[in-house]
Write a protein that binds this DNA or RNA. Sequence first.
DNA 1: AGCGTGCGCCGCCATT
DNA 2: CAAATGGCGGCGCACG
Length: 364
Amino acid sequence: MSIEYPVRSVGIVGFPGVEILDITGPTEVFSFTNLYFQRRGCTQTTVYPLTLLAEEAGQLATLSGIRIVAEKSFRTAEDHFDTLLIPGGDLGKVLSNSDLLDWVKSVAPKVRRIVSVCTGAFILADCGLLDGRRATTHWNHCREFSRTYPKITVEPDRIFIKDGNVVTSGGITSGIDLALALVEDDWGQEVALHVARYLVVFLKRPGGQSQFSHYLALEASTRPDLRDLQVWIMQHPDRDLRVEALAERMAMSPRNFARLFISETGLTPAKFVEMVRIDTARHLLSATMLDIDGIADKSGFKDPERMRRAFLRQLGVNPSDYRKRFGRSDGAVLAGVPDPEIERGPYRSVAQTEYERKGRLMDH
DNA sequence: AGCGTGCGCCGCCATT
DNA sequence: CAAATGGCGGCGCACG
C-alpha cells in the first residue's frame, strides 16, 4: 500500500561561520517527520528532502570550527524549494556578500515560505523581506536589529513569529520550535506532537524535564481548559498544585484528570509542576538577589531542602552553585544580562531561559 | 545516612 | 458494544 503525500523540499542556506545548531535543530525535526511517514509505510519518498546550499559546493567551517558539507552551490541550484531556511551565526562576511543576498532576494518570491533562525533574521532584513512585518531574533541583538532596520517591528520576547509567509525565530532552541510549527502547519498537530516526543527522547540533555520544548509543554494541548490550567500554574507556582487540588480546579476526578493531562501534554501533572517550579526558581536565582529561602517560597518548593533536591535531580547542581554560575550576584556575568528594554515578565519559557543561559556562557 | 510514610502514578475493573 | 470516567490497590520514590 502506498499513499501519495506532497513533497516539500527544504533548502538551507549555509555560509562560513554559520551556527551549526541553527541548521541541525530544524533539520532533525524535518528528518524525524520523514521517518514518521516512512515508519507508517505510507510512502517510499521523503516528505521533506533537505538540501544544504552555499556559495560553493563543498566544505564549510561552522562557527564552532566543525565542518559540514554543502551539497551544491546556490548559484546552480535549480530545485524549486517549498521552504527556504536561513540560519544565523557570524554574519560579518555574509551581509557584505551581495551574491548570497541577491540570490535570497531572487528566490524569495518563488518559495512558499521563508524562515530564519537566530541572527538569520538579519539576512532576511537586509534583503528587505521583513519590511513592514513583525519579526524576532536573538535577544542580545534585538536592539541592534531594530536600530538597523527601523521598518521592522521587533518583538524580543517571542519564540518565533509568523507574519504571512515569513517566519523568524529567536534562538537555537526556538529553531526547533519553529520547525515543529511548520510541521504542524503542513501535517497537523498529531504529527508534530509525535515528532516532538521523539525529539525529547533523542535530544534529552542533562537538564532533564526542564529541557522540554515550549511547544510540547503548551501548544500541544488540544483542550483550551488544560492550556489555561498550564498557564495558570506558571503564573501561580506557589499555590497548592497537588494532583488532587488541580483536579478539583478542573472539576474532574483525580484519576481522570491525571490521565487526561498525560495524554494531552505528554507529562504527568507532578512532573509539569516541578518543571515550572524549577524554571521559576532558575529565573529568580539568575535575575534577582532574593535569598534561597525566599526563592524556595516564591517558586512553590516552600522548603529550601526540597528545592535543593529537585535541582540536583534535574540540573545536577544545587541552587547556590547555579546562582554562582549564572546569577547576577557575581558581577562578572553582568555582560550577559539582557537589555532592560527587553526584560521579561515573571515567567519565561523554558526555551527562552535555556537560550539565555547559552548566551551568557558565550559571553565569557 | 537511613528509614518510615505519604504522594504520585498506573494497571485493572466497574460504571455510565 | 465502544468510549469515557471513576474508584481501588499496589508499587516506587521523594519527603521529612
